[in-house]
Amino acid sequence: MITMGIDLGAKNIKVVILKDNKIIGKSIVLAGFEVEKSAQQAVDKALKEAGITKDKIEKTVSTGAGDKLAPFYDETKSIVGCDSLGAVFLHPATRSVIDVGAEEGRGMRCDETGKIIDFEVNEKCAAGAGAFTEAMSRALEVKIEEIGPLSLKATEDIPMNAQCTVFAESEVVTMVHNKVSKANMAKAVHDAMASRITSMVRKIGFDKDVVLVGGVANNVGFVYSLNKDLELEVVVPKDPEFVGALGAALAAAGWKGGK
């Protein structure tokens, strides 16, 4: 069976095409201002990689903040549901999922089939999303891909106010004036983010194995800080930003874990 999953996130649109539970095509495109156009682009790219035409897709599920803007879909499914399904597929021992995207951090607990037991979302008063690291990278004048490895070179822990992004940003200004090293500042940023995420996750509790998905999972600095806060090692699957779209495609195929 060939299915498609489209995850229309706040910043990026991800598409996954599955054939008999194997990924045969995927793509990621910046959503931008013309979301429908970008979504169509993403779909076309994925189809091209899979080497098939649209009519071969038997079922499509869309998810994410912009789920209704997909160029076509048979059903929508919640992003937390898709994340869990995708995570359990890639890693059957998954019982908790943390998804840190561009604009939102989410925590989930699921069972062995990938069904959601409880979930929580980072709301107001939170510096727990990818947009924060982007802003910080700009402030530190490093490339976004560099900020993670840079933070691993830190020599000191500097506490940053983790409650309010705005307060945190002004604390960076203070650190710059106090000539704190870039590496130490980078670590402070990741610690602050990890603290926000951990705070949220504690609300629903977490069970091993904990899987980290979403774009920010690629940030080794963030993973390091998060592991310290949670006192365990999170599992980061390959291509973590595609787990939501994968889950949507699995849902379209009627896949369930635990078999």
């Binding site: 506490p159 106010n161 983790a162 409650q163 926000r196 705070s199 806060d229």
Partner: peptide, 17 residues
């Protein structure tokens, strides 16, 4: 006066620090 991540499940974030 340290940032912490343990009170979120117990006290809603809109109450005083």
């Amino acid at each position: 006066h340290e940032p912490q991540d343990v009170t979120e499940p117990h006290i809603f974030g809109m109450f005083c620090p």
